[in-house]
Design a protein around this nucleic acid. Structure first.
Lengths: 127, 127
DNA sequence: ATACATGCAAACACTTTGCAGCACA
DNA sequence: TGTGCTGCAAAGTGTTTGCATGTAT
């Protein structure tokens, strides 16, 4: 299973790296399609999966909504506006010691964690 | 909009309070159905929504999977086994000060947060 | 030449919704 | 009596998959 450098894969990677607003698969698909490039949505999903498994981009799972993707592949946290559903970065260092605060693991082996903050973005507070 | 005390709503609430293993809507539906009670899945979803909005039960959104529900409605954290997808409670106090660690809110108003740990449960480590 | 990738459509998993009839207050 | 609730089926949303064809190596 060797990876091929196809036009579609390059476009998906470049588009995520260019859009700095945590785009969803749907948004990436629309962005690529808008530039008269033929690409199918299945291909976008397949390439997003491959690229995030390779660590080229970051997959951000979003509860109750479409997952989004981040050109920034260093671990960091996000906040989601509960009204407009947009996702923003949080200015907080990665809490590497968080696992050590767990008092009893009951044999569970933890290897990662996600924090999602929820609230209102500046624009939605006006309404 | 006054709430009515229907058999179905009572059954959904009692079932969540009795099952202490973070059941999904589907599991709650199957549990109620198995006791020769006629209930529709839409009613289960509708009542889970109402009951969690009223604070009687807790709704736990799970990225990449079915949301689950918790009889324990005090804030606490969860870990999900990435192999069997089961959800467990984490023995860690609620980190009320977490928001204060954020260095720059950029005008965002945060009112809650979720932490989901990911790893392997004891059973899945054997495999 | 031959894996791997693609487009398309269909299937999938989870959840919500429109509607007509039912039942709690 | 009247609004809130129900079952059913259909639709909605986000994502994956089967398959025949295409293409990078």
């Amino acid at each position: 299973m060797k990876n091929r450098n196809t036009l579609q894969r390059r476009l998906v990677l470049e588009t995520v790296q260019r859009m700095h607003n945590h785009p969803t698969a749907e948004e990436i698909f629309r962005e690529i399609s808008s530039e008269n490039t033929l690409i199918s949505k299945a291909t976008v999903y397949r390439n997003l999966k491959i690229l995030s498994e390779q660590g080229e981009i970051q997959h951000i799972p979003i509860p109750n909504g479409a997952d989004c993707f981040d050109f920034n592949n260093t671990p960091h946290y996000h906040m989601e506006c509960r009204r407009c559903r947009r996702v923003f970065d949080v200015d907080m260092p990665y809490q590497a010691d968080l696992c050590s605060k767990i008092q009893n693991l009951h044999g569970f082996l933890i290897d990662s964690h996600h924090i999602v903050f929820s609230g209102l973005c500046p624009e939605c507070q006006q309404k």
